[in-house]
Design a protein around this nucleic acid. Sequence first.
DNA 1: CATAACTCGAACACCGACGTACAGTTTATG
DNA 2: CATAAACTGTACGTCGGTGTTCGAGTTATG
Lengths: 208, 208
Amino acid sequence: MTTTPASTAAAKRSAGAADGGRDRAKRADALRNVESIVAAATRVLATDPDASINEIARAAGVGRVTLYGHFDSRATLVREVVDRAIAQTDASLAEVDLDGDPREALARMLEATWHLTHRFGALVVAGSQVLPPEEMRRAHDGPMARARDVLERGRAAGEFRADMPVEWQLSVFQAILHGASAAVHRGEITADDAPALVRDTTLAALSA
Amino acid sequence: MTTTPASTAAAKRSAGAADGGRDRAKRADALRNVESIVAAATRVLATDPDASINEIARAAGVGRVTLYGHFDSRATLVREVVDRAIAQTDASLAEVDLDGDPREALARMLEATWHLTHRFGALVVAGSQVLPPEEMRRAHDGPMARARDVLERGRAAGEFRADMPVEWQLSVFQAILHGASAAVHRGEITADDAPALVRDTTLAALSA
DNA sequence: CATAACTCGAACACCGACGTACAGTTTATG
DNA sequence: CATAAACTGTACGTCGGTGTTCGAGTTATG
């Protein structure tokens, strides 16, 4: 082989989040290309989850063969992209303060989640087509559990309406986020206006 | 040729909505099969917009070749399915009373639209991948225009909040419908509960 | 009941995307 | 600057989906 496969599935699993130490030192340009590819893949797949390897390689400014030098298969690449997205999602949401007034706490969660939804978009679709569904579940269960906690605390305090299932309210939470992302993509609203609209609308929908 | 192509693209265009008179009399079982195919295609594509011809034929209890005897190509079939869906959508929404209290009028629109969204689901996706985007636009512009009228009337009357763009409120309208359909599909809520939840939540989100 | 219409499965060519192999060139690094 | 690592395009085999053809069997209809 002419190029060194950067990562088998097993190696990836152990590599963890970012640029952990590899077996042997990798050349600087190789590292840079891997980053370009992952970044491009994230960008492209977030818009079109069915994008071909060719499109992704072109978007990364890299030959198709080069991409295969770093990722065994399309599935491997998607897994890497999704793993990073999940990592960043967990990191971003971990630093959201869930205490205090439930309405304000939910507003903070909406703000943080909006940016993630907007950035990653349809990436969850690309993941679902390749990765085992159980893996996707886990990625969404974390954030949803946090939102559920805030929601239930607010319902107990009489600030959120309790005449509908919490599951449904979580669906609404997701639906409005997703709808806002689509609206921005369609050019109906600007990305700057989105956070406030999402916040006001969702709070209105869920408040008692 | 062993089978008579039931419909070229041109013939379809002139055939209009349902079972208009064909050139020559078609046999009864052929007609029945065409219906089975369209029904199955609607059912399958509403769930998986990327379903193959094979899956659709199997779902219709018909051989793949038989399907091609009635529809020139996948695109032709999708067009027929989408055309029928649009026709039924227009028919269902046409008989919704838009007058009277804006909130109640919007509730009636939500009720009617919910059934359509639930039945047709991802069919719009299948259409977008095959038909010219302009054709899909037209299908959604009608219903959306009606909703916009009710919305604007309600805003003027002070019943709907006017501190956010109407376009955004229409996006919310769509998003909650779509989210409810997804929630039902995931089994989080039942199809029976959905209409009331959609109505209550959307009205809460948009009311002043 | 005889004929024409319809259905069916198998087989074929076509196409696009995936993944691999090879050979030549560029470039990072010691 | 010499060497090995990395990048590149071309070409190839594979796979799944599409659309067509054929020949034989079935069924509606006059």
